[in-house]
Design a binder for these strands. Structure first.
Lengths: 204, 204
DNA sequence: TGTACATCAGTGAACGCGCGTTCACTGATGTAC
DNA sequence: TGTACATCAGTGAACGCGCGTTCACTGATGTAC
């Protein structure tokens, strides 16, 4: 087998092992030793492929973002009204988070040490996600400029994220999933109606 | 000096030291040794007053909740419309979070080890906060039952939390505070308008 | 008020554990002739 | 094709550090007489 091929295979095995570990028990359960055991290599070998564990986590998170993006893309209904589309997105977000709690948490939990910043390809993956929100938002509020639309998309994403994150959190009183889904629908569609109305007034 | 008095004084000093440490550098910078140095006692003395550091963090968080509650209470405008009141609450949340980033983050970041659950007095402090949301919400949607209202208040809180948390997070592209404030106002008032409208339709 | 004693707050060195990362070594792979 | 050599992926024991918590000890405080 070619050396590069081996190296790539190990890389994939390590990412898979890391993903598995996070999936099972959360980001904080990621241990270099267990990882190596799972991927069938020595601890030291990890550092031939990745500079450190942070880079590995970043790779896992990139994969999660990607899977989430195709999950959302797979649910798109081109016929839907903007309001329905936004509600559908929130619903997809809830379903993905509920189905992959640890992987999803890891996206937000993981912080790089002070000096280092998130690589561009990671930011690009985020941007691709936000695009799914921008599309219906543009139809809902046609008067919005590109910058305003991007900003508002991010804000709507954040609001949805908050509802899902605290809703799934067992720290407060736990809420049944379907109750949470109904709450999301109520609030997101209210936002959509209110935004459309505000936009119509502004550009009347 | 009385022994109980000493003990109580030490307790206060420890909480103050812990609060200071979190305030300066975040929850993860809390160290038993630094704490003891700051409070002027030996490491071991901490464990005469608190069972462990978690209990100390809980005490700091309780104080933060309390301060936030009076902050919100101090801004109440009885004359405001429900929509204005809700926007005002979101604004207060943003201001408090921006002014106390580390203390505020600690409220959500801190997790108890698996077996232990949050004490009742802590949950009660949370409930007192949610009450501030429930009041205007009740005026906005008079048809809501107490349970529905409490649930929706919590959901609105979560949405606001999400916008503030991701907005202040430097992990994404940073947003100027005033831009964030405007976004919050836009979205919260849209939600309020949409909810009032939906409620009116439902109970027409 | 003074003395002897008991209690327990207070001490801080040491324990114990976890864990990321390194590094001197080895052996398989690839290359040159 | 065969042989000698160089490279470097792969190894895993050991390093190094951080840090919460304990515990045998001490001395100040409070009590009994």
């Amino acid at each position: 087998m070619d050396t590069n091929e081996r190296r790539e295979r190990l890389r994939d095995d390590l990412v898979a092992a890391a993903r598995g570990a996070i999936e099972r028990a959360g980001l904080s359960s990621l241990k270099a030793r267990e990882l190596a055991a799972e991927a069938g290599c020595a601890v030291g070998a990890i550092y031939n492929v990745f500079p450190d564990l942070d880079a590995l986590v970043l790779a896992v998170n990139a994969g999660t973002l990607e899977r989430f993006e195709s999950f959302v893309a797979g649910r798109r209904e081109p016929e839907a009204s903007p309001e329905q589309a936004l509600t559908g997105l929130a619903d997809a977000y809830l379903d993905f988070a509920a189905a992959n709690p640890h992987l999803w948490r890891a996206l937000f939990q993981h912080r790089l040490p002070d000096g280092k910043s998130v690589p561009d390809w990671y930011l690009a993956a985020q941007a691709r996600l936000f695009a799914h929100v921008e599309a219906p938002l543009g139809r809902l509020c046609p008067g919005l400029g590109a910058g305003e639309r991007a900003l508002l998309a991010r804000t709507l994403f954040s609001a949805t994220h908050g509802m899902v994150a605290l809703g799934l959190d067992e720290k407060l009183v736990p809420i049944p999933l379907e109750t949470l889904r109904a709450q999301l629908a109520t609030v997101v569609s209210a936002m959509a109606r209110g935004l459309a109305q505000g936009n119509a007034l502004k550009h009347a």
